[in-house]
C-alpha cells in the first residue's frame, strides 16, 4: 500500500454539470491568475444548478481546480450562502438586522413562519418554500426587505408579504 495518493479524482473529462455550466467553468478557471480563484463563483453556480453543493459537485470542483476535497469543504463551509443540503424552490430570506428590525423585520419573519408553517432554515413539505432569517442584505433604506432566491423585495408589510408568497406559489405551479 502506498500513501502517495496524488488526488482523489472522479474520472477526468466526465462532468455532473450541464454542458453550459461545464463550459462556463472551463472558461472561468482561465480568467484568473490562479485557478483557485474561481472556487467561490463555481460553488455558487453549482448550487444554483443543483440546488445545493452536493458531494459530487465538491469532488468535481476540487478536481477542476486541483484542490483536495478538504480544501473545498474548508472554503465552502465558511460562506453562509453555500449549503450542502437541498432546500425549497424559493428560499425566503427575511432580514431582521437593525434597519429592518426597527421597521418590522422580526414581525415579518414571525409572520412568514406562521404563514408557511415552518421555522428558520426549514422547508415546507411541498418543497416550495424554505425560510431563513438573514443578516443585513443591503437594502436598509427600503426596510423591511426580503430576498427570495436572488430577488429583492423592499418596503414589505405582512399583507404585501402574503401577496408575494402567493405569487411565488403560483409561479411554482407553472
Amino acid at each position: 500500500m502506498s500513501l502517495t495518493k496524488i488526488s482523489e479524482n472522479p474520472k477526468p473529462g466526465s462532468t455532473i454539470f450541464s454542458p453550459e455550466l461545464a463550459a462556463r467553468f472551463d472558461k472561468l478557471v482561465t480568467l484568473y491568475p490562479v485557478r483557485r480563484s474561481a472556487l467561490i463563483p463555481m460553488l455558487l453556480y453549482a448550487q444554483d444548478e443543483i440546488g445545493y453543493v452536493s458531494d459530487a459537485a465538491i469532488a468535481e470542483i476540487a478536481q477542476r481546480l486541483d484542490l483536495t476535497v478538504l480544501d473545498v469543504r474548508n472554503v465552502l463551509s465558511y460562506y453562509s450562502m453555500l449549503r450542502t443540503n437541498p432546500i425549497g424552490k424559493y428560499n425566503v430570506q427575511v432580514c431582521t438586522n437593525i434597519s429592518c428590525m426597527v421597521r418590522g423585520g422580526q414581525e415579518l419573519f414571525q409572520h412568514c413562519k406562521k404563514r408557511l408553517g415552518i421555522g428558520h432554515k426549514q422547508t415546507t413539505s411541498d418543497g416550495i418554500f424554505s425560510l431563513e432569517e438573514v443578516e443585513c442584505i443591503g437594502a436598509c433604506s427600503w426596510a423591511p426587505a426580503v430576498q427570495v432566491n436572488y430577488d429583492f423585495h423592499e418596503n414589505l408589510t405582512p399583507e404585501a408579504m402574503d401577496a408575494l408568497l402567493d405569487e411565488y406559489r403560483s409561479k411554482a405551479g407553472q
Binding site: N97, I98, S99, E135, C136, G138, A139, C140, S141, W142
Partner: peptide, 11 residues
Amino acid sequence: DESEPGTCKDH
C-alpha cells in the same frame, strides 16, 4: 462587498 448593516449605497 457592502455588508455593514445600515448601508445600501453601493447597491
